[in-house]
Design a binder for these strands. Structure first.
Length: 541
DNA sequence: TTAGGGTTAG
């Protein structure tokens, strides 16, 4: 039953003159559950009790499932009492769902009591109990029961393998997988995802190659494995392979992973291709895909497209709002970010800590110190969000960018959390902008205490002294840096050209066309200089 | 009409 039809069903239900029979109630339960309306099931059940409806054995599994989903122990116990009173404990459907209910609210002992006292058990009952132990992290008891179970079907085997994976014990998971008498495709996919989520990309690749049959979950397992482990080029290669070699069509999960790789690699053209693909394959109104698209466009620098996607959505969630607000904020469109924040609040979506990172970042880019502090206070006062180090970092950045260096240092010293290198580095950056060498030295001292081996700190101060033409200081710093025995790892950039992503460093000459590239760059700088602008290269963050 | 297993975004 679809959600739309629920209200029709309600109208019909209300016209039934005699509601003493459980059947129409049970049909409503089924509809509620299909639409995640668990609260309605429990409320209706209460009504059934009050109106003395004669309950039958079909009602209880759905009511108990709903109690479990709502983590409603009190209501669950109440239903348990009714079950005992009417005498449905011998029913395996009722018993299994009772075990599930107690397990999902963390009462494994109560679950076991039900399991233990059951007269008749089947493979479902055993699976529920084993599942209960797994869900509560007791793998030893789970395995003991698993070995004792009189019957083990593929679902039970798979659940036990998943249990080991959830405890990050891939070795035990693999052992069990290897001795499974009947593996189905899901068994393979479970193990594949296990490798992917436990950081074992190679294990994931090997298993994928071993598979004789693959479905969408298999491909997504491989692609997701690359994505979760930062192997973004491989994400794209695997995606291209999927399109070329298999009959499996990408779905929303595939597209989301590919989009996140595009985002990280700056692969805008492929990102656009995914956009077109999504629109022509029925994912136009998919929340996950749209959120991925917003982030991809924003991080690839095409914030306008990000806004277009956001505006075209018919359903938005917290992530949609956060992505667009943060995207606008980091691209200097602070006032748009703030007006979207107001729109978000009006639409009834409750902001979280990440929303406020975008909001504070917007204030910081616009130099709105007072507003920034007002929003910062709103966080805790109106939304009960405890500021984390990232939020304090935004505030320090806000003060630093506004040139209020002294206030910034005081703020850092008063913070309830210990400042990390990110915060001090932001301050050091502000010291450079405002050419404040004294503060810079103070900040550098803090940075060296936190991270003595990081040469980037010295480089930053050297740059600050260089800006002030204090070459003697620069030379001294270079010596100090040499004494730490480490070299600064050069930052690297990525750019997408003709379907390929190229990597380059500052003054990099590895590219076959580096002469032409530098030539073009030189004329660009000349052109911007003659038009009276400072070179954009020095204006970039 | 009732019970158990797999992926996705900031």
């Amino acid at each position: 039953m679809e959600f739309k039809k629920i209200s029709y069903a309600h109208q019909v239900f209300d016209q039934i003159p005699d509601l003493q029979d459980a059947s129409p109630w049970n049909i409503m339960f089924k509809g509620y559950i299909q639409n995640d309306m668990y609260r309605d099931v429990v409320v209706s059940f209460r009504r059934m009790m009050n109106e003395d409806v004669s309950l039958n054995c079909f009602s209880f599994p759905m009511v108990l499932k709903s109690c479990g989903k709502l983590l409603a122990l009190v209501e669950g116990e109440e239903v348990h009492g009714v079950v005992v009173k009417i005498g449905f404990l011998t029913n395996t459907f009722v018993g299994s769902t009772l075990i599930d209910m107690y397990s999902s609210v963390g009462r494994v002992k109560c679950a076991y009591k039900v399991f233990n006292e059951m007269v008749l058990r089947n493979v479902f009952t055993w699976t529920s109990m084993i599942n209960g132990y797994v869900a509560n992290g007791d793998l030893v008891s789970a395995r003991m029961l698993f070995d004792l179970a009189p019957e083990r079907d593929v679902v039970l085997w798979n659940r036990m393998v998943t249990g080991y994976i959830e405890c990050r014990d891939m070795e035990e998971a693999r052992k069990l997988f290897d001795v499974m008498p009947n593996k189905d495709l899901m068994s393979w996919n479970i193990l594949l995802n296990g490798y992917a989520n436990n950081g074992d990309v190679e294990g994931c690749e090997n298993l994928f190659e071993e598979m004789k049959e693959r479905n969408i979950f298999s491909w997504n397992g491989l692609i997701g494995g690359y994505a979760h482990n930062g192997r973004f080029t491989e994400v794209i290669n695997a995606f291209k392979r999927m399109l070329n070699e298999s009959d499996v069509k990408p779905n929303d999960a595939t597209l989301v992973n590919v989009l996140s790789a595009c985002t990280r690699l700056g692969a805008l053209d492929l990102g656009k291709w995914v956009h077109v693909y999504a629109e022509s394959n029925g994912y136009k109104h998919n929340l996950y895909v749209a959120n991925g698209l917003i982030d991809m466009y924003a991080k690839c620098g095409v914030v306008g497209n990000a806004v277009d996607v956001f505006r075209s959505m018919d359903k938005r969630d917290l992530i949609s709002w956060n992505t667009i607000i943060n995207g606008l904020a980091v691209h200097g469109r602070g006032s748009d970010a703030l007006s979207l924040f107001a729109e978000m609040k009006n639409s009834g979506v409750e902001p979280d800590g990440i929303t406020f990172i975008g909001v504070l970042c917007a204030c910081s880019h616009m130099g709105l110190v007072a507003d920034g502090f007002a929003y910062f206070n709103t966080m805790a006062n109106d939304y009960s969000i405890t500021p984390k180090i990232e939020h304090y970092g935004c505030m320090v950045d806000l003060l630093g960018r506004a040139g209020l260096l002294e206030q910034a240092v005081k703020f850092v010293e008063k913070m309830p959390v210990q400042a990390d290198a990110v915060i001090w580095t932001a301050l050091l950056g502000a010291c450079r902008v405002y050419k404040n060498i004294d503060f810079a030295r103070l900040v550098l001292q803090k940075l060296i205490e936190l991270d003595p081996k990081n040469p980037a700190n010295y480089v930053m101060l050297a740059n600050i002294c260089g800006d002030a033409r204090r070459w003697k200081d620069v030379a001294e710093l270079k010596v100090a840096m040499r004494d730490t025995g480490s070299r600064k790892v050069p930052g690297c950039s990525l750019i997408e050209v003709a379907d390929e992503v190229a990597e380059f460093y500052c003054f990099d000459e590895r590219h076959s066309k580096s002469k032409e590239i530098y030539g073009a760059l030189k004329s660009l700088m000349k052109a911007s200089k003659s038009s009276g602008q400072e070179s954009p290269l020095f204006l970039m963050d």
